[in-house]
Amino acid sequence: MAATTESVKADAAEAPLLNKRNLTLGMLLYLVFYSWVRWYEGVYGWSAGLDSFAPEFETYWMNFLYIELVLEVVVSATLWGYIWKTRDRKVMSITPREELRRHFTHWTWLVCYGWAIYWGASYFTEQDGTWHQTIVRDTDFTPSHIIEFYLSYPIYIITGVSAFLYAKTRLPTYNEGLHLMYLVAVIGPFMILPNVGLNEWGHTFWFMEELFVAPLHYGFVFFGWAALAIMGVVNTEVDAIGKLLKKDLA
C-alpha cells in the first residue's frame, strides 16, 4: 500500500504525458493571429491596398511586408537554433515513458503544422484567388500576396521544420537516419515559397488576367502534393507508439 501511495505521489509530481496547455495555446496562437490578420486585410486591403504607387500602400502594406520578413528570420533562427542547441545527446537511453511524452510533444508540433498548412495552403491561397479576380494587380506585392506568400507560407515552414528538428533531436525513432517522407512533408511545402519566384516572373511577362488553372501555377500544385507525405510520418509514428504501448505493463 505504501508503495502504491509513493507511486501515486510520483505520478502527481511528474509532468503530464500531454501538455494540453501548450497544445491549446499553440492552436490559439495561430487562430488569434490570423483572425487579426484577416481583420487587417478587410480594413486596409480596400482603403490602402488598391494602388501600389499610393503613399498609403507603402505605409500599410510595404511596411507590413518589411516587418514580417524581419520577424520571420528572427523567429526561425531563434526557434530552430534553440531546438538544435538543446538537443538530447543521449537520445537512445531515455525511458519508454519519457519517449512517449516526447511523442506527445512531437504531435503537438505536428498538430500545429497541420493547422498552419490549413491557413497557408487553403485559407490564404484561395483568398488570393478572389482578390485577383476583383483587383487587377499592379505589383508582385499585393495585399493578398504579402499575407499569403510572405507570411502564411513562412509560418508553416517555420512550424514544419521545428517539428522535424524536434523529432530528429529528441526521438529514438528518428535516430537511424533521415525519414524520407518527413523530409518530403516539410521540404515539399517549403518549395512552394521559392516557386513564388517562377509565379511572379511569369505574371510579370505573360498576363494580367487571373486564370487560376493556368499552367504557370502548376509548380504550386506539384509541391502541394508533398502534403500527402504526412501519411508516411503517421505510419512511422503509429508503429513507434504502438511498440511503446504494447510492451509489458510495469
Partner: peptide, 23 residues
C-alpha cells in the same frame, strides 16, 4: 491528434491542387 493533422494537411494539399487545376 493524428486525425486532426491528417485532415488539415490533406485539406491544404488537396485544396491547393484542386483550386489550381480546376478552380
Amino acid at each position: 491528434m493524428i486525425l486532426f493533422t491528417l485532415f488539415t494537411a490533406v485539406l491544404g494539399g488537396y485544396h491547393i491542387h484542386y483550386m489550381l487545376t480546376g478552380g
